[in-house]
Design a protein around this nucleic acid. Structure first.
Lengths: 260, 260
DNA sequence: ATACGCTCTCACGCCGCGTGAGGGTCAAGC
DNA sequence: GCTTGACCCTCACGCGGCGTGAGAGCGTAT
């Protein structure tokens, strides 16, 4: 059994002694033993836990989240990874929008184009703020549906035509596949739909700049169901699809929550 | 000429009023005018400056750095924007790579769950651990190492159980011999180890589909040293082997490079 | 007049530690 | 046994980038 002092473990892991003290303070990584002299001693197990901590830290989790994750006996690595994936995708989307914004700003500086003030900020806004804004929208879709649509168009306008077309093409493919499934007689609750619904959710996650949780996804389904514009749009794809799709989405979301 | 109050500008930019106050406090973004009532009023110019600030902030500059950059009289907006664009693209690339890595890890974890019943033989590390390990590796050591990992796992996965078992048997023999040498008191730098180390390198070369140069071999040693799974694995063979083996590998690699 | 929303200025709190200050502990050498 | 120097400890403040009140003034509509 190997035993490490603070500085040994710190050097091994490439972190500072202070960091180990801190992790002890907040109960994230306790020493295996503490001597009479109050020296901290760590063993193999703590080394492994520290590795886990550092991995999650690199992926951008806060220390609180990490300790929750690691101390959850039913810690699901898969779920955790999927969460990370959604975060990354949202980030990537933000980056794409920022790129477009910068390009347009460059164009403006060169005097080639005029730009509206609101356009200056598309993509530049902080992720938290935008996330807040969007979840707010979804919570209150009923009264603010126009705002939502407006925000959406502003957003998509800030994309290049080719990007936008590609995104729409992808959405169309997913929707067509879902409509086909419906026409083949699949009930909205069918588990066989899961891969398609997952693709759909993933697409949505990319256009939002916040993680699309099952909960949020279910809210989106409600929105689809409640608003005539959306119903119309989906009915145009296939008869009954305007009701079937939200049902499928809600069914999927429910199952996700149950398995949590 | 447009004039904005704090809350107007904040909403436009997707930031908080407090943030504008803060930027005023630290002199990063001063209002165009301040009324008798001490209200802050911003104009077009401030709007543009705020955009610059937010872009730079997104790119990870501190507010101090941003103000230094923006207040440099030789500051060229166009040039700066182009630089930011480049950095942004690099960031986006990193994100894409991380996404891929996570996807691969997810795929593997899902495969593992589905095939849990058909758990034929245990490899070097459990596939679950390995999946996690790979994403960590790529985070730490970059994209270039991915090819090697990929080739490695693909190869071992595509092998018949008997072949795989044979390979593992051979590896075990080499490692046991090395561990024996260590326990007999050989320091990692001993030249007498060369034949064994060469056998080891040769084994590695066979499992990689890429040439295993001394340099690559030294990198592998670093990995062995850095990751707890490997350390654990080698410590299980013999106490201290987890540190000794990488040292021996590195020593060998160093000598190879000198003789070149 | 009064109510409501916007604005202001303090001023403390949060995270993830860095960076001392001030003092004990341990092994080695004189 | 005594010093030296390298460790270790516990406070405790500081930083950056704001969030989040509290308490008070301003502006406009009814």
């Amino acid at each position: 059994m190997e035993i490490y002092t603070v500085s040994e473990l710190a050097e091994l892991a490439g972190i500072s002694v202070r960091t180990l003290h801190h992790y002890d303070e907040i109960g994230l990584l306790r020493p295996a033993r503490v001597g009479d002299n109050r020296y901290r001693y760590y063993g193999e197990e703590e080394l492994l836990r520290l590795q886990q901590i550092l991995i999650h830290r690199e992926l951008g989790l806060s220390l609180g989240e990490i300790s929750a994750v690691l101390d959850d006996p039913a810690f699901d690595r898969l779920e955790s990874l999927i969460k990370q994936r959604d975060r990354l995708e949202a980030e990537a989307g933000r980056h794409r929008r920022m790129l477009k914004t910068i390009d347009r700003t460059i164009a403006k500086l060169k005097g080639e184009k005029a730009m509206k003030d609101t356009d200056l900020y598309s993509g530049v806004v902080s992720p938290q703020k935008q996330a807040e804004y969007e979840s707010w929208l979804i919570e209150r879709y009923g009264e603010n549906i126009r705002g939502e649509i407006e925000a959406n168009t502003v957003k998509t306008q800030s994309m290049s035509p080719t990007d936008h077309a590609g995104l729409m093409q992808e959405l169309k493919e997913i929707e067509d596949a879902l409509a086909q499934a419906m026409q083949d007689g699949a009930p909205p609750q069918a588990r066989s739909l899961d891969p398609l619904i997952e693709r759909h959710r993933s697409w949505v996650a990319r256009t939002w700049s916040k993680p699309c949780t099952p909960d949020a996804y279910a809210n989106l389904a409600n929105l689809y169901e409640a608003h005539a514009d959306f119903v119309e749009r989906y009915e145009a794809i296939a008869k009954g699809f305007g009701a079937w799709l939200p049902a499928a989405m809600q069914s999927w979301a429910k199952r996700q929550e149950q398995t949590c």
